[in-house]
């Protein structure tokens, strides 16, 4: 399915997103950082609670590192397409790289005893822990993640939990 604003704006639950954005960035850390900072600012401006922001930032970091490193193999000519939407109750993001894709089922369990001391393989696990939904397309080069915001009826004035 092509990544168009029309596609990503299809109402999946009930309401239309307050913010929907789609960008394409080159495969480098500085560009990834810029978009991460931008998304963080959007979440802060919406007064999303600290814990959900931490979760989204962490999942986003891991997903973008995967896209740059494993998907696009650090090839600066390859792009990463990012589409995100902020709804009143949740954040959704879709990240697509230009790589050949992978099978998430092939990633060994990093918490298995024999893998505990392996230096890689924890990103996907963290994404799954911190987001409510992490799904890959068939090819395995697009990840869709969503985070439902926790109810935060009385945020304290200093922003702490």
């Amino acid at each position: 399915m092509p990544l168009t604003v029309a596609n990503i704006m299809k109402p999946q639950r009930d309401v239309s997103p307050a913010i929907a954005l789609e960008v394409s960035i080159p495969s480098n850390a500085a560009e990834a950082r810029r978009i991460q900072d931008e998304i963080e600012q959007v979440l802060i401006a919406r007064q999303i609670n600290d814990r959900d922001i931490f979760s989204i930032k962490l999942a986003l970091e891991e997903a973008l590192v995967n896209a740059i490193k494993h998907g696009n193999q650090m090839d600066h000519l390859k792009k990463i397409r990012i589409a995100y939407q902020l709804f009143p109750d949740r954040f959704e993001i879709q990240i697509t790289d230009d790589g050949p894709g992978f099978d998430p089922g092939d990633v060994p369990d990093p918490t298995a005893f024999e893998n505990l001391e392996r230096p890689c393989g924890r990103g996907l696990m963290l994404m799954r822990h911190y987001m409510n939904e992490v799904a890959y397309n068939d090819l395995g080069n697009t990840v869709t993640m969503s985070k439902l915001f926790r109810a935060n009826p009385n945020p304290s004035p200093n922003g702490k939990k």
Partner: peptide, 16 residues
Amino acid sequence: EYLSSAALGKLITLNK
């Protein structure tokens, strides 16, 4: 305040 799984990898290697 913040670290990623890639940083965890370095700590594992350091530990070894």
